[in-house]
């Protein structure tokens, strides 16, 4: 039995804080848990915190994009927060620009962004 990544609820926002390197099964579980929680809680948005991740490869990059797409289909926005400089540079070198994924520097800003998006749905990312 592998660990599951917890999905926390703060007000109308779901928070996923990834603390360890992810295995395939954990990612699949997370996608399932998260989509279920979005539907159950009618969440406004999802914040994924990757401050603790020192290595983000194409696999994790794809996972972030997939989760963003899933939550958009379910009517909530996803913001990835806390990406480290080294991680950002690695992703760019790999040619991954995470299209369709919103980003913010800190958790606080990520939550602000979601609130703003709900006030003004046409805002640019």
């Amino acid at each position: 039995m592998t660990d599951r990544v917890p999905v926390l609820k703060i007000g109308q926002i779901l928070l996923v804080s990834i603390q360890t390197d992810l295995e395939d099964q954990m990612v699949l579980d997370l996608q399932e848990d998260l989509s279920q929680r979005i539907v159950d809680t009618n969440a406004q948005g999802v914040v994924i915190d990757i401050t603790a991740l020192e290595i983000v490869d194409s696999f994790v990059g794809r996972m972030l994009a997939t989760i963003a797409s899933i939550s958009r289909v379910l009517g909530s926005e996803t913001v990835v927060v806390g990406m480290r400089p080294a991680v950002a540079m690695t992703l760019v070198e790999l040619g991954l620009s995470l299209p369709g994924v919103r980003t913010a520097l800190t958790l606080e800003r990520g939550m602000e962004q979601i609130k703003r998006l709900n006030q003004n749905p046409s805002a640019p990312r």
Binding site: V80, A88, L91, A104, L105
Partner: peptide, 11 residues
Amino acid sequence: KTVVAARMMGA
């Protein structure tokens, strides 16, 4: 590249 990297940090 630089712009994309900065965007991923939320700027």
